[in-house]
Amino acid sequence: MDEKITYEKAANELDEILKAIKNDEVTVDDLAEKVERASQLIVYCKEKLTNTERKVEEIIDKLG
C-alpha cells in the first residue's frame, strides 16, 4: 500500500471502484485487478480505523 495514501483517499478510491463495478464500467479482464485493489483498500481502512480508535482510547484514558 502506498505510504502516502490517506484514509480519505483510500475510501474515495474504494468508492470509485465500487461505483465502476456497479455501473458495469469494469471489464471482465479488469475485474480481478479491481477486486484485489479494493481488498487492499479495505484492509488499509480497517487498520487505520482500528489504530485511530486505539489512540483515541489511550488519550481518553490518560484524561480520566
Rank of each mutant, 00 (worst) to 15 (best):
V56S: 00
K19V: 02
D30C: 01
V35A: 11
A10W: 01
N23T: 01
A38E: 02
D30I: 02
M1V: 06
L14H: 02
A11Y: 13
R54F: 13
I42T: 03
T6E: 01
D15Y: 06
D24L: 07
I42H: 00
D24W: 07
T6M: 04
K9I: 01
E58Q: 15
E13N: 03
I21E: 02
V26C: 07
L14W: 02
R54H: 12
E57H: 12
K9Y: 05
N51G: 15
E3L: 09
V28S: 11
E58A: 08
E53M: 12
E36S: 13
E8L: 07
K46A: 04
Y44T: 04
D61L: 13
L49F: 01
N23P: 03
C45S: 11
L49G: 00
L63C: 07
E16W: 05
E16M: 08
K4S: 03
E25M: 05
I17S: 13
M1A: 07
E57G: 09
V28G: 05
E36D: 12
Y44K: 06
T6V: 05
I59P: 11
Q40Y: 10
C45A: 14
A20V: 13
L63P: 03
D61Q: 13
E36H: 13
I59E: 15
Y7H: 02
M1K: 02
S39A: 10
S39G: 00
E3H: 05
T27C: 07
I60P: 04
D61F: 07
V35I: 14
N23H: 09
G64S: 15
I5E: 10
V43N: 05
Y44I: 11
D29E: 15
E8R: 07
V43Y: 02
D30A: 07
K48I: 06
Y7F: 10
T50N: 05
D61A: 15
I42N: 11
R54V: 11
K9S: 07
E53D: 13
K19Q: 02
L14Y: 05
V35Y: 08
K48Q: 10
T50F: 05
Q40R: 15
S39N: 09
K55R: 10
A20C: 07
V35Q: 12
A38I: 10
N23A: 08
G64M: 13
M1E: 00
E36G: 02
C45N: 14
L18V: 08
L41N: 00
V28M: 07
Y7I: 04
E53S: 15
L14M: 10
Q40M: 13
K55H: 08
K34Q: 14
V26I: 14
N23L: 09
T52N: 14
T27Y: 01
E53Y: 11
D29A: 11
D15R: 09
E16K: 07
T52Y: 08
K19A: 00
K62H: 12
I21G: 00
E25W: 00
T52V: 00
Y7R: 07
V56M: 10
K62A: 05
V35K: 15
A20H: 13
T52M: 07
A32G: 05
A11Q: 14
K34G: 11
K48A: 10
L49Y: 06
L14K: 10
A11S: 12
L18G: 03
I59H: 03
